[in-house]
Computed example of a mutant assay.
Amino acid sequence: MAAWDGVSEFVAVAETASFTAAAKRLRLSVAQISRQVAGLEARLQVKLFYRTTRRVTLTEAGGVYYRHCSHALEGLDDAERAVSDLQATPQGKIKLTAPITFGEERVMPLINDFMVLHPQLELECQLSNQLVDILADGYDLAIRLGHLQDSSMIARKLSGRRRYVCASPDYIDRFGAPHTLSELEQHHCLVGGAGYWRFIEAHKTRSVKVSGRMQCNSAYALVDAALKGLGLIQVPDYYVQDYIQQGRLLTVLDPYCEPEEGIWALYPFNRQLSPKIKMLVAYLAEHMAGV
């Protein structure tokens, strides 16, 4: 297996353009990555990378070697996945990421149920509202909300979400319900971190600056304030759908609500044949339907 020594490390550095990012992807130290790449260069008697304090780029020889090695590693991955396909039970580690609140509320309970069904699985999860680099950080799966920007991934729609403007019956009894966007300036709007709300008017997206007695970056705090009659809120449906069904919150400005946004599972092309990823995505799609 000496011919494979340093190849995975070399490919990771080539794809991330960084020894540090490659170390993070492979869960190794930067020193180990550097040592393996140096050993590979010594064995091949060729320089594979140009290194500066700011950038790591492939040499001409490195580019040729990368093209061959990347195909070879993909073939090895395909072989391992083909063997895994013979096993009825998904196993091994899944590394995934999801937005914090939606992950806590909707994703992780389903993931935990899936883990109970498949005890040979291991999980590494990062809940973050930052758009992580799926490939560079070595993620198998990412849950994303709304418009997708990364077209290099496979995307499967799991469900959808819609934003509603709501208020308590008590608030509407006291202040009335707005019927046009211009009327919002006459109301107490409970504001999130952005300071504006999004709507559709005349088939175009419109952002409306809102203000009121309260501004908070916690949707749960805003929902609680709305339930207590402090004002109007605009939040995704999964925060308020139970309260709407119970009549504790009433929706307003429904004709101006944006169309449903997608809730997506996003994963690299080389994960599409993985049984554990296929089964997990199918499980999430089944159980998130109607979220």
Rank of each mutant, 00 (worst) to 15 (best):
M1H: 07
A2L: 14
W4C: 07
D5F: 05
E9W: 06
F10A: 02
S18V: 13
S18C: 12
T20I: 15
A22P: 05
A23Q: 04
V30D: 08
V37Q: 05
A38C: 10
L40E: 01
E41Q: 03
A42E: 06
R43M: 00
Q45L: 00
L48R: 00
L48Q: 03
T52A: 00
R54A: 14
T57E: 09
T57D: 14
T57C: 08
E60M: 09
Y66Q: 15
R67L: 14
L73M: 09
E74K: 03
L76C: 04
D77P: 03
D77N: 09
E80F: 05
E80G: 07
R81V: 14
S84D: 13
Q87C: 13
T89F: 10
P90T: 13
G92L: 10
G92Q: 01
G92T: 06
K93L: 15
K95Q: 08
L110P: 05
N112M: 15
F114D: 10
H118T: 01
L121E: 00
L127Y: 04
L127C: 07
D137W: 03
Y139N: 00
Y139H: 05
D140S: 01
L141M: 10
L141F: 09
A142S: 01
R144L: 02
R144D: 02
H147E: 04
H147S: 06
L148E: 11
D150V: 11
S152R: 04
M153R: 14
G160V: 06
R162E: 06
S168W: 03
S168K: 03
D170P: 00
F175S: 15
S182N: 14
L184K: 04
Q186S: 13
C189V: 14
L190W: 12
A194R: 12
Y196C: 08
W197S: 02
F199D: 09
I200K: 06
E201S: 14
H203I: 13
R206L: 15
R206T: 14
S207N: 06
V210R: 00
G212F: 12
G212R: 07
G212N: 09
R213V: 15
S218G: 09
A221T: 07
L222V: 11
G229D: 10
G231T: 12
L232Q: 01
Q234A: 08
P236Y: 12
D237H: 11
D237M: 07
Q241H: 09
V252L: 05
Y256G: 14
C257G: 06
E258G: 04
E261K: 01
A265I: 07
A265N: 02
Y267A: 06
P275Q: 04
K278Q: 12
Y283W: 14
Y283V: 10
M288Y: 05
V291L: 15
